[in-house]
Simulated assay, not measured.
Amino acid sequence: MLDVLKAINFADQEPTLSHRFGVFFLAGGLLPNPIDLRFQKVSGISTDVQLETINEGGENLHAHRMPKKMNYNNLVLERGYVSSNKGRGRLFSPLNVEFNATFSLFKFNPSNVLVTLFNEEGVPMGGWMFLKAYPVKWSVSDLDAQSNTVAIDTLELAYTRFQILRI
């Protein structure tokens, strides 16, 4: 009986660690891209409500603050530099092709992106589904002859909205 009560008590649960996650690009909204799913960092998962202030005539003590629309930050993904070279055992990156098409040809192909948080056994704990995401920025870390660090690709995506998934 005590184990059941402990399982129900949310205050006893340990917080989920943030270092076990996956990023899945869903082609056509359904099929995950099996190559581009490992990233070292994901940021920009946030939203807020933009408010409109309405002043009431003759009322100087307060104003009405009404919800106007949702604001979403861009989803920012960071990973080690990935070459699209098929030779020497390297994997072809569909994500690099999509970013190249956007920035070289100004062609956009929005897709859904699922960011999933896993527990220590690799079981999904929750996640975020970003709908109609498309590239808006791509950068590579500084190249420095005096440094011995990994070159980092930073990929930034805009999206129409996101849904929070809790399991």
Rank of each mutant, 00 (worst) to 15 (best):
M70K: 02
N73D: 11
P94Y: 13
N71C: 02
T53A: 06
P32F: 05
R65H: 14
V97G: 08
N71F: 02
T47P: 01
N74M: 02
N73V: 02
V42A: 01
G80W: 05
D48K: 12
R79A: 00
Y72Q: 05
F39R: 09
E98H: 12
L77P: 00
G28Q: 07
E98T: 15
N55R: 05
N60L: 05
L75M: 01
H62L: 08
K68Q: 14
L77M: 02
D36Q: 11
Q50S: 12
D48T: 14
L91H: 09
R79D: 01
G28C: 07
M66S: 10
L61R: 15
V42K: 04
F39C: 06
I45R: 04
G44R: 07
E56I: 15
L51H: 09
S43C: 03
N73Q: 10
Q50E: 15
M70A: 15
G58Y: 08
E59K: 14
R90H: 12
A27C: 06
N60R: 06
S93V: 02
L31Y: 01
G57H: 05
G80K: 06
G80S: 13
F39V: 05
L95E: 01
L61C: 09
Y81H: 09
V82F: 03
T53H: 04
Q40T: 13
A27R: 09
Q50P: 02
S43P: 01
F39T: 08
M70Y: 09
V82Y: 00
L91R: 12
E78N: 03
K86M: 14
L75S: 00
N33L: 08
G57Y: 06
L91E: 09
P67K: 11
Y81L: 15
L61Q: 14
D36N: 15
G28W: 08
V82R: 07
G29T: 07
I45V: 15
V82S: 00
P34V: 09
S83I: 05
S84R: 04
Y81K: 04
R88F: 10
R65L: 01
D48H: 12
N71M: 05
G29Y: 04
H64L: 15
G58M: 06
P94E: 04
P94L: 13
G89N: 07
Y81T: 01
G44E: 05
I54H: 13
H64E: 06
L75G: 01
L61K: 12
P32Y: 02
E98W: 15
G87W: 01
G89C: 09
K69S: 14
E98M: 15
G87L: 04
N55K: 13
L95Y: 09
V42T: 12
K86L: 14
R88T: 10
